[in-house]
Design a protein around this nucleic acid. Sequence first.
DNA 1: CATGAATGAGATTTCATTCAT
DNA 2: GATGAATGAAATCTCATTCAT
Lengths: 233, 233, 233, 233
Amino acid sequence: MVIKRKEARRNKIITRALEIFAQKGFQETTIAEISKASGVSEATVYEYFNSKEELLFAIPEEITRESVEEFKKILPYLKGAEHKVRAIVLGYMTLYQNNPQYSALVLLQLKSNKKFQQTRAYELIRDIARLLLDCIREGIDEGIFKKDLDPYLIRSMLLGTIEHLCIRWHLLGVPNNIVDYVDPIIDLIMDGMRVRDEDKKLSINLYIADGKLAASEMNNGNGKRVADVEPGQ
Amino acid sequence: MVIKRKEARRNKIITRALEIFAQKGFQETTIAEISKASGVSEATVYEYFNSKEELLFAIPEEITRESVEEFKKILPYLKGAEHKVRAIVLGYMTLYQNNPQYSALVLLQLKSNKKFQQTRAYELIRDIARLLLDCIREGIDEGIFKKDLDPYLIRSMLLGTIEHLCIRWHLLGVPNNIVDYVDPIIDLIMDGMRVRDEDKKLSINLYIADGKLAASEMNNGNGKRVADVEPGQ
Amino acid sequence: MVIKRKEARRNKIITRALEIFAQKGFQETTIAEISKASGVSEATVYEYFNSKEELLFAIPEEITRESVEEFKKILPYLKGAEHKVRAIVLGYMTLYQNNPQYSALVLLQLKSNKKFQQTRAYELIRDIARLLLDCIREGIDEGIFKKDLDPYLIRSMLLGTIEHLCIRWHLLGVPNNIVDYVDPIIDLIMDGMRVRDEDKKLSINLYIADGKLAASEMNNGNGKRVADVEPGQ
Amino acid sequence: MVIKRKEARRNKIITRALEIFAQKGFQETTIAEISKASGVSEATVYEYFNSKEELLFAIPEEITRESVEEFKKILPYLKGAEHKVRAIVLGYMTLYQNNPQYSALVLLQLKSNKKFQQTRAYELIRDIARLLLDCIREGIDEGIFKKDLDPYLIRSMLLGTIEHLCIRWHLLGVPNNIVDYVDPIIDLIMDGMRVRDEDKKLSINLYIADGKLAASEMNNGNGKRVADVEPGQ
DNA sequence: CATGAATGAGATTTCATTCAT
DNA sequence: GATGAATGAAATCTCATTCAT
């Protein structure tokens, strides 16, 4: 019961701190402000966290941990690297979109902080990134993804895209629904942007001409003989 | 002459400030430090810049402006959206890699600063992003890129990837040469990661069998008749 | 039994507090530190002592009291002011040397604290000083020490010397055995304090008596022939 | 001129700080108090001194330095170790008595502070102590003081006595004139230290010469008539 | 122009101490 | 009787910024 009260208080402080840090930034936020918003004294904040920075770093822990756990629960149910990658991307974006203060804090305040790299919360975030990397590798090993891909690059592309979109959303307000981009991202990463030949309206007619088997390509409306077909060996 | 001296002083301050801000971050850097490194008094720093933040925002201007100008000079010489996109990506990454302090400052200190959005330097960075967007649109219009692509998304993917790689480089030290990634990024964005059918070792034999034109797929060593070929219409 | 437990706890706190205060000084020591070292809660420390300062003042009481009692037991067995003075000096220095934390606390933390003057522990220390003063006076009254000595000054010389040596020991590490100095101190001071023969009101009359040159000492009013004088060689 | 202003300000701060530290002690004194008393802002105090402790340690420097210089000027004019020792003791006590705040600070706040040992001011104080030690040694070497004296002990006795008296004066109010004790101290210590006549190889011969009773002192091997002896009354 | 000097304005942090359980 | 938890109350120290010279 008493433990619950401490826990509740800690959570309250973390919640309020998240709100304020996300809105005003770390430096512009004072402990006085957080303590007042949390209904405790400044000294009490320091009972729970040894420093303002420790408080900052403690904030993303719980949400991130839950997210990692969820990922780990879900992944086994998914078959195929492609589905798994998509699931992680979807999960990531959902996490960011559903917890805007969390994502603002992580992307705008924490990611660029060197000390954050030595944090448990960062370790958890790295766990997710590692899961994603594993899925990419799995796809390569399974022959689903191209053999010569650099899995780190793929991961950077996925995470970079997600983060870029999310930061734009926070700073510019657009797009307002980043989760909508999951499929476009996945599709594009999987298939590329370039229009391919087979995507063109293409048909080949095979016919006997000049006593030979010939193929003509019908494109842009006008057919022309493109090849004589020799029997294969 | 006197103007030159002022200009030189201003540049000195900007140069030193870039070095120190990039290394220690904005908050951890003091005007005293910058003034000492620049060989001027603190008050003199305030002669040139009205506030510490104004100084911060003034730093990336010149480099960014030069970069934009270069892009604008080069692009007309390039034919084809694909080449142009590649050129901008390459230029971006080269800019970041060749000016590590600049990129550390922009990516770690400035991008997450809301006030930075109202800055001339930001406007210049946005110019580059706009060039990239235009090229992507051009490719779509030209039929080189898929019609249903969201050009903003493509741009976010490209920029997000570049920035993610660059931030990893600054914070983790790897990869140590991000420009190497230009072609892998472009190739992947253009073509996708998934292994396609046509990439498989596939050959089709056309032959006359049973008095009909038939096609057999040679795959994995064993041929089997897969279709009878009817004359097209 | 319960009383014993309380007593034991109190002693534990005092012991630990002595150690820490002596090592780090009063201001640098926190109640949290003492309570942890004592295995009790901070609040419990306040059950036994009303304030940090009260705890500080309580520490030297017991040791000092025991020391006073010992002095009082021993002194009656000693005959002669000189022996008594020496005994007290020896006792003092032994007390300080055998209880280094105690002496560090008393000499470095307490002696310069004005409030300490109103303390029972100080009262006890003053008791010892008074014993020493009494012995000095006794010596003067007995005619062992010079009549015109200021007994306070003598005491200050003895105590000042002891404390100076002890403080040097604590701060500089030398001398490492202050008790060795008891006799040098006593000898030197006594040589200065002690009534010498030539200082006594002494006059020698030389005269011819019985046909011999004789000398008579006039002392205490009554002359008596003390020697016949032979021509020297 | 500007230098003078800075110097004056520094002195003002030091003077006020001395007053307040001496009266209330280091811990009980706040920078706010000192700055107000000095007529400057708190920040200005920190312009001159990097920390409260640095200010504390800076206070005794000047007075002590002047005192050392004075000692060094005076000593050469004095002949004989005894006079020199007396001069230093007198100088010491005069310094302490004429600068009560200084002596209160040094004796009650600084002497027991370990960090003070690494201070320039402490170095100066040590200089004086060294001068005293040198004089004592000189006396021993000259045969004025006993050969087997430990000069360090003598010095500790002198300094310990002075300090004890001075501390008593500060804490108890008595004696109110410590300089009065210079001669008693010197006399007493000297009586203990001094090589005495009876310690010298001395014999007095009484004999009849010229029809009178005469005394000759045999010293250093050569006798000479020193007095005619008249019959006493 | 340049700057030495001064400071306003807080912010973080620390602890001794209290009190309800 | 013991303590976990909370906090009141400062105090030190830091800097961006200003201004007179």
